[in-house]
Simulated assay, not measured.
Amino acid sequence: MKKMTWLVASAAFLMTGSVVYAHGHEGAHGIKRTDAELMAVLRKAAPPAIVEHATVMNAGPDGKMKVIQEGTNGWTCMDPGVQGEGEPMCADKAAMAWAEAWQGKKPPTAAIGFMYMLAGDSGVSNTDPYDNLKETPSNNWIKTGPHVMIVGTDALPMMKGYPRAAKANPKAPYVMWPDTPYEHLMIPVN
C-alpha cells in the first residue's frame, strides 16, 4: 500500500465502515472472500504471530468492513486489493492512523508506523497517492513484490538516504510518493 500499497497502504484501512479504499464498493477489485479464505490469504501477508493476534477485517455482504477477529496485539489485517488481485496486509496502530489520514486526504500522522505486505501488491503510481486504478504512460506505475513499509512524518529523516526517483527500482528500498505529504519507505524483503 504502498497504497498503501498502502498502501498500505495501504487501504481500506478505514475502520469507519466501508471497504471503499480509493476504488468504491468492494475496493474495485471485486474480490469477496469468506472469512476462512481471508484468514488463509492473510497468513501470507505477515508473520503468523502478527496475524494470529491481530484484529482482522473483512467486507460483509453490504460492502462494509466488519471485524471477524478481535485482536490483542495492536495490529489490523485485511485485504483491500485492487486490479483483480489481492493485497493482503497487516498494519500497526500508527500505520492504520497514517492510512486513514491518507485516505481522508488529511495531514499525515507523525508517529512511525509499520506495515507488512509480504504477498506483494498489484501496483500503484509511485508519484501520486491517489492515482492507483491502472497503469498509464505518465503515472510512474510500480509493482513491488513482498515488502514492508515505514510510514509517518517522524520517519522522514531516516528516508533522506533512500532513492526518491519517480521510476523507482522495486527490488531495492525506495521512497514511495516522494515529495508528497504521504511519502513513505518501501523495503522489499526478497
Rank of each mutant, 00 (worst) to 15 (best):
M1A: 15
K2C: 15
V8W: 07
S10W: 13
A12H: 06
S18K: 12
S18C: 14
V20I: 13
Y21H: 13
E26W: 12
K32P: 01
T34W: 00
A36I: 00
E37D: 01
L38S: 00
A40D: 13
V41G: 05
P47M: 05
P47H: 02
A49T: 11
I50M: 06
V51S: 03
T55L: 11
V56D: 03
V56E: 01
G63S: 11
V67H: 07
E70V: 10
E70W: 10
N73W: 02
N73S: 04
G74R: 05
D79N: 14
P80M: 09
P80H: 10
G81F: 00
G81N: 03
M89T: 15
A94P: 02
A95P: 02
A101P: 01
G104A: 15
K106I: 10
P107D: 07
T109P: 00
A110W: 05
G113S: 07
F114E: 03
M115G: 12
L118P: 06
S122M: 07
G123H: 05
S125P: 08
T127G: 08
Y130S: 04
L133P: 04
P137H: 05
N139M: 05
T144V: 15
P146R: 11
H147S: 03
G152S: 04
G152M: 00
T153D: 10
D154M: 10
L156S: 11
L156N: 14
Y162P: 04
Y162A: 06
Y162L: 13
A165Q: 13
N169G: 08
N169S: 08
P170F: 04
M176V: 15
P178G: 10
Y182L: 06
Y182K: 04
M186R: 04
I187H: 08
